[in-house]
Design a binder for these strands. Structure first.
Lengths: 337, 337
DNA sequence: CTGAAAGCGCTTACAG
DNA sequence: CTGAAAGCGCTTACAG
């Protein structure tokens, strides 16, 4: 069943059928009604490949997701889908591993499908620096800053990781803690962990609290299991800490579980704070005090920025900082004296 | 940049370029080398729309996901992606709301894109009964049984929800509980919740334990917040229960939090068991005793079943039951006497 | 308002 | 081994 069949069945030409299908107005009411009746009778949908091949030779908006196990990204993708569905935009989502080169992938995808716009969820700035120049369509990087790059077709929307990290560590310090361990991230790759760490260190410095990265910091990937293991290593090395700041909620959930298994009772013996504000943070025991990244805003600004760029002849790249908010839980209390 | 440009640049015809690009063997080594060198120089990728339009006029495998917030599905999708990527199959994923008609969607998608196969994650049998007859390609429904339908191009892979539910409730009863509340699901739609409930009831009946669905059962959608609320309603109505069986881990996590907020201490005052085996179940406090659905096997059997059907002229629909396993946690202990 | 025709970028018989 | 040509299912000037 194709447009030619519909033409035969309705007694009109394929051109007129095509016009009706695309909502053009220069069609008589009787042609419109006749054609739509047979379209509906057969539940006809035009072939997407042929349509895109002609239309403007542009494919749907692409979403390139870096990392498969990221609950925040999962949230954001859902909202992107909902928003774009609502305005009738198709979405193509590609999931890459954390260490894959997303810009290379985008280049290949551009060749094969010529997307009208690309949303990157997560990204390594080094890759952008090297290869992004060959990307032609408007793009938005969500959760990382591109201001150091200044490509004309690349905007970004993100949380101010450094300041947010400062703010949440401030909560720990306000409660009276002087020896704070930090768990999570990998400083050699991904500037995000580095920014969070640096905000934390700045906050401690402001309060004249010492921080030795060799003894008080322990890296970990963003998973419960790795958070669990990292806490165990940290506490074995530096048992005098009274509070832990985990660079992600999933890390914190693993770390808290490790603390409990190590005989600590929470939050009395050890305070915890973290980053992200995933749903589980509000239901775990104790509830996490965390700094919430607004996934809704990240997604909505990401989409609206991209759409604006797509509809403007001379796109003006922007950098959009989404507000964060301290979400009070029960995981921070005064240290034992 | 298209295949014609590559042809000009290399001095061969588009036909020969196309042959090289598709790995045909009837091409001279010199032509192959020359053409590949310019393809690589420009990082050329053939246009996907034009290619699919010609090739066999078939699009990638489609994955139709019912419900956007399902952690088990998220797991399964990830494995599907990985498996299919590895053999060079493209995947198109569509997320529908829980109450959308996935078979109608598949019909429209078939018209527009003519997929070579469809994987349904979740599905309402009623919709399949009504409209699936018009779907032409091989399909596999994951997490629900299609044996009552007998379409020649529809297989299924699922956990035996009824038996798994029986087994986990048996754990509760073995610990000595006599008054068990059940939280979760919605019996009017989605046979899965009904099967889980019925396995639980059968188990109680086997042990001569009474169960009054009006007092001891409380429905809930599959989310932490709804699990929280449902527990509160249940405990207000039926305070004499000593154990709760939640039909999903996320419901259980919400319900446990509600129990704690109601002044219960866990697991001493109230035992919990649930269904699914998501990652968080191993890190929450107390660790959940749950019956694990094997997302890896569900995904792998789903994919391999689909591929087999796609490669066979006369596909033989199968129903594949994936083993479940009781995952011991700390959430079930003897009731207080 | 409508139709005949060109063309989007590919693949694949067909002929050599 | 290679190329000229047809055709996949659409959309859109162009002409009427």
């Amino acid at each position: 069943m194709n447009i030619k069949d519909i033409a035969n069945l309705s007694g009109y030409s394929v051109a007129t059928v095509s016009r009706v299908l695309n909502g053009h107005t220069n069609v008589s009411a009787s042609a419109h009604d006749k054609i739509m009746s047979v379209v509906n009778q057969y539940n006809f949908e035009p072939n997407a490949n042929a349509r895109e091949l002609k239309r403007n030779e542009k494919d749907p908006i692409a979403v390139i997701v870096k990392g498969r196990n990221n609950l925040l990204f999962a949230d954001i993708i859902e909202i992107i889908h909902t928003t774009l569905d609502a305005i009738g935009e198709e979405v193509y989502v590609a999931y890459l591993d954390e260490d894959e080169n997303e810009v290379r992938f985008a280049l290949r995808h551009q060749m094969a499908s010529n997307p009208r716009g690309i949303l990157f969820l997560g990204g390594e700035l080094e890759y952008f620096k090297q290869h992004f120049g060959m990307i032609a369509c408007p793009c938005v990087l969500i959760t990382n800053s591109t201001t150091s790059l200044s490509f004309p077709n690349l905007s970004c929307v993100l949380t101010n990781d450094e300041q947010a990290s400062f703010d949440i560590v401030n909560e720990i310090i306000k409660a009276g803690h002087q020896s704070i361990g930090i768990v999570g991230g990998n400083l050699s790759q991904g500037q995000i962990s580095a920014r969070r760490l640096s905000g934390a260190i700045r906050c401690m410095a402001c309060h004249n609290i010492g921080f030795n990265i060799h003894t008080h910091y322990e890296p970990s990937r963003y998973s419960m299991q790795e958070g669990y293991d990292a806490f165990k290593r940290l506490i074995a090395r530096t048992p005098d800490i009274t509070a832990v700041y985990a660079l992600g909620d999933v890390i914190a959930i693993g770390a808290m579980r490790a603390a409990i298994d190590s005989g600590y009772s929470l939050p009395c013996d050890m305070s915890f704070a973290s980053f992200d504000g995933i749903q589980g943070a509000r239901f775990c025991v104790p509830r996490l005090t965390t700094v919430r990244q607004d996934s809704t805003l990240l997604a909505q600004y990401g989409v609206s920025t991209l759409l604006k760029m797509m509809s403007t002849a001379e796109p003006l790249p922007v950098c959009c900082i989404v507000p964060h908010v301290i979400q009070q839980g029960e995981s921070i209390i005064k240290p034992r004296t």
